[in-house]
Amino acid sequence: MNQAHFDALIEADERIEPDDWMPDDYRNALVRQIAQHAHSEIIGMQPEGEWITRAPSLRRKAILTAKVQDEAGHGLYLYGAAESLGTPRSELLDRLHTKTQKYSSIFNYPTPEWADIGAIGWLVDGAAIMNQVPLCRCSYGPYGRAMVRICKEESFHQRQGYQIMLSLSQGTPEQQAMAQRALDRWWWPSIMMFGPPDSDSPNTGRSMAWGIKRFTNDELRQNFVDATVPQAELLGLTPPDNALVWNAERGHYDFGEPDWDEFARMVRGEGEIPDVRIGVRRAAHDEGDWVRKAAAAYAGKRDARSAA
């Protein structure tokens, strides 16, 4: 009965809402996906946040602050959506802090130069938006609604990143070289943000059937390459892929095979950066403990006073 009702809603492309009965697997898959998405927003604040104090103009400083602030906000929207499935935010944060839940490994790449801030906006946010727009129609209502809000706010993130790249590529020779280095660093990681190839993505079929996912990894990856190559050309920059060529017959760009071994290493969290990221996050949480205790104690006292 419950299952049949759920299946009928999914079949009719209706939305599932928090109080509805849903299969455990659906609930668990969603909690995992939404939490990982939320964690990615929160951890993703770090590589960019490091540049707020060093941004080369006041305008860029303001833009970057607003962007990193949006990311905190997006994390909060997403934790809210995940919580509606019955797992409190505190528990989700514990899972992040103890590395039992992952965040996107794209944030484990370093940002040694200012141009990386441009490349992240242009490529990483570009790839993220491509992943996220279909999620606005996710079968789970609160996730879809959070994504609508996020996509609306995030449209400036990619544009500001591209504008940074544009300024650099029209700037001094050093700035141009910096822009090319950033593209070299971020091209392949961005391509890999869409996840493993469909042939190696065991959960895709199920997620598509449930309306959690709307396009396959490879479909989205192709869209991304097709959209991005002309943007790189306009910048006068060259993606680091010798196999990249327009295929008139397919009406798409052909491109090379990413280094999936590197992808696997990044997903496993190898290298020093994951410990740094989680370390910063945990320290903030632990050092904030006395503040949260104080606020809770004050609220308790005030409730007691108003009850008396």
Partner: peptide, 20 residues
């Protein structure tokens, strides 16, 4: 701005960024 990603709650990250 130096508080961003270090605040006691995520809500406070947003609040301090706003004031900044």
């Amino acid at each position: 701005a130096q508080w961003i990603t270090h605040a006691p709650t995520l809500e406070e990250d947003v609040a301090l960024a706003n004031i900044s």
